[in-house]
């Protein structure tokens, strides 16, 4: 085999070895700290139960601000969407109707929070 071809093959091999080293470092050595994992990456069924707990607490204390703050752990963007998704999961999992009702109550409370109050004035 010509020397030039051998050198080219070794060059490719060294690139492959470098890629392998880079992947090992990024995927196996420098992984995210598990201690920083948040409820945001919980499995869907655990998220649904989390939302149910928030709804149960809300049912008892009617503290919507606290409920919103807790739901923001699951999705900082939209607590209402979080509860809606959890409701779908809960229905799929055949949660007890009473639990679904508690979650629905929280969902309604959040929707009323996010819906701008009607002013009665005509739109421009």
């Amino acid at each position: 085999m010509p020397m030039r071809t051998v050198r080219f093959l070794f060059f490719l091999l060294s690139i492959a070895a470098g890629i392998g080293l880079g992947l090992v470092y990024g995927w196996l050595i420098k992984t995210p700290d598990p201690g920083q994992l948040t409820p945001q990456v919980l499995r869907a069924d655990f998220k649904a139960d989390y939302v149910l707990m928030v709804a149960q607490v809300y049912q008892r204390d009617q503290n919507l601000a606290q409920a919103v703050q807790r739901l923001s752990r699951l999705d900082p963007a939209s607590p209402a969407r979080t509860v809606a998704q959890a409701l779908l999961t809960a229905r799929d999992l055949q949660y007890d109707p009473a639990d679904l009702q508690v979650m629905s109550d929280l969902s309604r409370a959040l929707q009323s929070l996010e819906t701008p109050a009607a002013t009665g004035e005509p739109a421009p």
Binding site: L12, I15, A17, G18, I19, L21, G22, G26, T31
Partner: peptide
């Protein structure tokens, strides 16, 4: 040189393009 090039590509893939996600 090949090793450094490969390392750069590997790190780009593992840390930026497709990092580990839990």
């Amino acid at each position: 040189t090949g090793l450094i090039l490969g390392l750069a590509v590997g790190l780009l893939i593992s840390l930026v393009i497709s990092p580990v996600e839990f």
